[in-house]
Design a protein around this nucleic acid. Structure first.
Length: 439
DNA sequence: TGTATTGTAAACATGG
DNA sequence: CCCATGTTTACAATAC
């Protein structure tokens, strides 16, 4: 492969499609997340998308994700329980300390690890509590586990950075401005590629990697159980809501995943963030056939340069996202999706295209005829406040807003691939609205 | 043999 | 200016 075509300097979420909807675009805008990861605690672990690969269509990876919530407790599978969730910063997670990491990696202290840099990075990140690490921590982790690098030429750090930059498996998350936490960004594993990384890791000769990352057998491999998934999500949600300081980035990815997963459900392509547009297609190694198949049939109307398209992640990522199976079907409404977003990350507060969340409804618009939708309710409420022109005006206004709501929500949900939810959602809301009006 | 992946090196930009 | 970080380019080695 020759030199790779230059990419646009702006790697962040600038997908035109996403820009149209500020709400979503903000949601996908990982890089701009305030307190994205610094605020993270043992947190809302990502509920990853599930590629429609045969090997990955089962819930192994999802189960693994669930296990992430429980500190990788694979004990039930008879696998060594190795909790990678020791807190690097020595926070609230019981620190097991590196001593419990006298894993086999260290045995080969002087030999080169059998892992590629991408896997090393992946392991490092996965070991972290926040599932995000600055480069320096990644260095440290690798050095700690693989002393080989202590004596290796310094070029390996360059390789690490190079890999982080180029490998689509890794996402950069900006640190929050206010926090003096060193310079540089935090790096996370792109949930989309996590299954692939795990798969790659399992293919490694090292049994330690296997015991470490091999997901347990799925209780329900093959197809998604909404209940199971719901329970996972609920667990996640509950945990999330308990945290006062929530990892917005994770929640974003969670939402991202959820919505993306819904995309496939409805087979509606969605232009999403193109944050992972990278030149050297490291991530292509993890593209699975199903994704490619979808890509072929994908009518995704992104404005990705076709030249870049085959090589970079944009379309393949979209396809891969589309390949992600999911949880959206288990969500009864948009609100359920948004419940996973920490309030701090809710959009619309800045007057952007407010796709208001439930919290708005609950707090401010209790008498909202469209209780499920703060979006319309606010407008209705405002109208009502001014509504000295009588019920007729108000009714008309609300009807108009209903229409707008349907349109807006329809567009958004259609875009998000969760349109299937819309029918029931709106009809329910409409019914409620009518009932209230009758009163 | 060609291609894809991975590793490595180096140049450069940016920011603390 | 130094250093860490991040990006980009280039090339080599390797596997398939």
């Amino acid at each position: 492969m020759g030199p790779i075509i230059g990419m646009t300097p702006e790697k962040r979420a600038e997908t035109p499609g996403a820009e149209k909807f500020a709400g979503l675009s903000q949601i996908y805008k990982m890089g701009s997340l305030p307190e994205a990861v610094d605020a993270a605690r043992p947190k809302a672990t990502l509920v990853d998308s599930e590629p429609a690969d045969d090997e990955l269509t089962n819930l192994n990876w999802l189960h693994e994700s669930t296990n992430l919530l429980t500190n990788f407790s694979f004990g039930s599978e008879g696998l060594p329980i190795v909790s990678p969730l020791y807190d690097i910063e020595g926070d609230d997670v019981p620190s097991l300390g590196p001593s419990c990491y006298q894993n086999p990696e260290k045995i080969s202290a002087t030999s080169k690890p059998p892992y590629s840099f991408s896997l090393l990075i992946y392991m490092a990140i996965e070991h972290s509590t926040n599932k995000c690490l600055p480069v320096k921590e990644i260095y440290s982790w690798i050095l700690d586990r693989f002393p080989y690098f202590a004596t290796a030429p310094t070029g390996w750090k360059n390789s690490v950075r190079n890999n982080l930059s180029l490998n689509k498996c890794f996402q950069k998350v900006e640190r929050s401005h206010g926090k003096v936490n060193g310079k540089g960004s935090l790096w996370c594993v792109n949930p989309e590629y996590k299954p692939n990384l795990m798969q790659a890791l399992q293919k490694q000769p090292s049994s330690s990697a296997l015991t470490f990352y091999t997901p347990p057998a799925s209780p329900q491999s093959g197809s998604l159980s909404p209940h199971y998934l719901s329970s996972v999500l609920t667990q996640n949600q509950v945990r999330t809501l308990k945290e006062s300081d929530i990892d917005a980035a994770t929640a974003m990815m969670l939402l991202n995943t959820s919505i993306e997963q819904g995309i496939l459900e409805c087979e509606k392509p969605l232009p999403l963030k193109t944050a992972m547009q990278k030149k050297r297609s490291y991530g292509n190694a993890f593209n699975h056939p199903s994704a490619m198949r979808l890509q072929e049939s994908d009518s995704l109307a992104t404005s990705i340069d076709p030249k870049e398209d085959h090589n970079y992640s944009a379309s393949s990522m979209a396809a891969q996202r589309c390949a992600s199976r999911s949880s959206m079907s288990s969500l009864s409404s948009v609100d359920e999706v948004y419940e996973f977003i920490p309030k701090s990350s809710h959009v619309g507060s800045d007057g952007s295209e407010g796709f208001h969340s439930e919290e708005d409804t609950d707090v401010d618009y209790e008498d909202d005829p469209l209780g499920d939708s703060g979006f319309a309710s606010q407008a209705c409420a405002d109208t009502s406040e001014k509504g000295r022109s009588g019920k007729k005006m108000r009714k008309q206004s609300c009807q108009e807003i209903d229409e707008e709501l349907k349109e807006a929500a329809g567009s958004l949900l259609h875009l998000a691939g969760i349109r299937t939810c819309l029918g029931s959602l709106i009809s329910t809301a409409k019914t409620q609205n009518q009932k209230l009006r009758k009163k």
